[in-house]
Design a protein around this nucleic acid. Sequence first.
DNA 1: ATCGTTCTTGATAGATCGATCTAGCGATAG
DNA 2: CTATCGCTAGATCGATCTATCAAGAACGAT
Lengths: 206, 206
Amino acid sequence: MNAGPATGRPSTKERIMSAGAELFRRQGYTGTGLKQIVAEADAPFGSVYHFFPGGKEQLGAEVVRTSGAAYGRLFTAAMDGAPDPVTGVRDFFAGAGRTLVETDYADACPIATLALEVASTNEPLRHATADVFTGWITLGTAAFTKTGIGEREARELTIALLSALEGAFVLSRALRSTEPLEVAGESVAARASALLASPAAPDTTA
Amino acid sequence: MNAGPATGRPSTKERIMSAGAELFRRQGYTGTGLKQIVAEADAPFGSVYHFFPGGKEQLGAEVVRTSGAAYGRLFTAAMDGAPDPVTGVRDFFAGAGRTLVETDYADACPIATLALEVASTNEPLRHATADVFTGWITLGTAAFTKTGIGEREARELTIALLSALEGAFVLSRALRSTEPLEVAGESVAARASALLASPAAPDTTA
DNA sequence: ATCGTTCTTGATAGATCGATCTAGCGATAG
DNA sequence: CTATCGCTAGATCGATCTATCAAGAACGAT
């Protein structure tokens, strides 16, 4: 039962989770083999089935939930560290763009590739991704509500933000350009700004 | 050289392409085996390598370009069939939502799953997806420019539309709900509407 | 010190992957 | 009739996949 934080390398389970998270994020679920994961983690093959008796599927589910939660904290940090929500949104998209460029367009959303792959083929994993997305929506709605935006508007703004972010990741990775991420970020920032200006508008679409 | 349009079943090559397109769209590239494709297409295994000497990769690239072009025509049709671009955008998102529900959340973007999978692992396929996205951006920019929106604004609106669409597909498929698609569609429609109202505004973000 | 538990370790099984290869079918041209 | 060529057809190859298994090392408790 080594949680191994103080000194030395992380525990075997942690190394397997980290390697799995990185590879699933970059190559997807079916595109990543357990052999590759244990090689990257420098862990014995059998340990996978020691820590994850459910095999690859259980490892995938735990990775999805763990890195999903971590990414949610990244969003919260950006919002909390900004003077206003519009700046927070801009900071978050800018940070995502920086990470993308620094990793040569490899590290975008930690679960999107896997989510698309399993949406129609693996119900337990689909459910894990759905839980993460639901958590992000709850989280974003709370953050925007705190700034004076109405409950309904805050939820829709969050969903629009996540959609724009995920879609921009798809385009940016394929095109190897940060332009989609920048345009999407500005688009969401503009919408957030409009909602802050008219706090009680019942309909902002027309 | 049977193009086989008039009567009877489509040619073997067409059946392989169709089956590949459907399976890549739903399960991704690495998650789909050639054996499964030929089984679905009711075609002999060897025919794959007769029509696609480059193997799975060549089949994938041709499928990406073909179904990418078809999806682009779908967008153009929605825009041309609507009285104004805002209605066109709404129609397009509504149609995408209908398809999603009718196929039990399986058929969303024809190339997004594959695009994320190969973005960092397969350069020829990544290039094929980039070509398709670039084509869509060109197509959308032209459609919006035609309605009086400035060149730059039209391009950014198109990129925002595609980002919102792709991201909403990710969320909607995972959550098995059309809410993200509806919210994203309204968000893009609102932005298009704003751009039509102020045709020459140099900056619409603040 | 000895036992028991936890974790490590890699060999191996059984299935499936993409790819190659040879053989044969069927229509058409000479 | 026969030669040719496009296509069908599936056996087969080596590699790789997930999963299982048995055995050994490390460590704590009594």
